[in-house]
């Protein structure tokens, strides 16, 4: 176990950035908890009024001026409002004008907070050209994503999840000889995938778990493809909507590349409501186990 949580890592990165002349913009930044203790009480923080579209435009303009702003979006659902300046301006700038507006969007996801505070929308930004999209869940992953951002001139969507903020552990891939299935997990489902692998093991299923941090560009490296070639069955798990989402997109890429069946598992195609049982929560360990067993059964490999 490491010594720093993800939240502490974000806070330290941010403090250094602000002290070095960078900027941070967002709504209600200094409100209760300073965005889950991820923002330091430092200079160069701009409290935006509740103007979600213009606020994103102001952040993009700050990026255009070279200040490498961190734009904090407290709930990813709000990206629908923030999206216009990000998608239509920041992401198109290089393709149209060979200029850049490298804004670092901290898009924070949560669970169980109802229809417009529990969304995971990174898939939307994978769809549009011009973005880099990553979903770090560990301190080192966050540092890596930040380093790549600082070396890049692209707008970044950093798909964070509150479930990761207290995490101190690095999450390594779990690869075993003769695995029956490979689970590819994204964002907070990575924590559940590890639990699922243990549950599957108890039932005699040997299960690889491969972590996906970079959603765009998503590169089919050997780290990604080799476990699938061994297990011959894959399952991509994402806390966003399954239809036309990250899980389906990545599953498709892997199937085309390897020729092996890969299923997508994400949210069902219905609204996330506030109260159980209508929350339409992200796949937990139980659902991942269930989906894995269905896949294996479909391939004629039945486990109890």
């Amino acid at each position: 176990m490491g010594t720093r949580t993800v939240a502490e890592t974000i806070r330290e990165i941010t403090r250094a950035h602000l002290e070095g002349g960078g900027m941070l913009l967002g709504e209600s930044i200094s409100a209760v908890g300073w965005v889950n203790n991820t923002v330091p009480d430092a200079g160069n923080i701009m409290e935006l009024p509740m103007t979600d579209v213009a606020g994103a435009g102001i952040a993009v303009g700050s990026a255009l001026a070279g200040r490498r702003p961190i734009f904090v979006v407290r709930f990813q659902d709000f990206l629908i409002l923030n999206g216009s300046p990000l998608i239509f301006y920041a992401a198109k700038l290089k393709g149209l004008h060979e200029k850049s507006a490298p804004v670092f969007v901290r898009a924070i996801a949560a669970e169980g907070l109802g229809p417009v505070h529990s969304g995971v929308l990174h898939s939307l930004f994978m769809h549009f050209p011009g973005f880099k999209v990553a979903s770090p869940m560990t301190p080192r992953e966050y540092e890596d994503v930040w380093r790549v951002y600082m070396e890049s001139d692209d707008p970044f969507i950093c798909s964070e999840h509150r479930a990761s903020y207290s995490n101190k552990d690095e999450l390594t891939d779990e690869i075993m000889a003769g695995a029956d299935i490979t689970i590819y997990a994204i964002s907070a489902t990575r924590f559940e995938a590890k639990k699922a692998a243990r549950l599957l093991k108890n039932d005699g299923v040997r299960c690889n778990v491969v972590n996906i941090v970079w959603l765009k560009p998503f590169t089919l490296t050997k780290r990604i493809t080799e476990p699938l070639k061994e297990s011959r069955i894959g399952l991509v798990v994402d806390p966003g909507h399954e239809i036309a989402g990250a899980s389906e997109s990545i599953a498709y890429s892997m199937m085309i590349n390897t020729g092996y069946p890969v299923k997508a598992l994400g949210l069902e195609d219905r609204t996330k409501c506030l109260c159980p049982p209508l929350q339409n929560r992200a796949p937990d360990a139980g659902r991942i186990v269930e989906a894995a067993k269905e896949l294996l059964a479909g391939a004629g490999r039945v486990f109890t």
Binding site: V53, G57, I58, A59, A65
Partner: peptide
């Protein structure tokens, strides 16, 4: 779209 971006530019650069 240029208006908020102009405002952000002015905020960040003071130009």
């Amino acid at each position: 779209e240029n208006v908020p971006i102009a405002v952000g530019y002015a905020l960040a650069s003071k130009k």
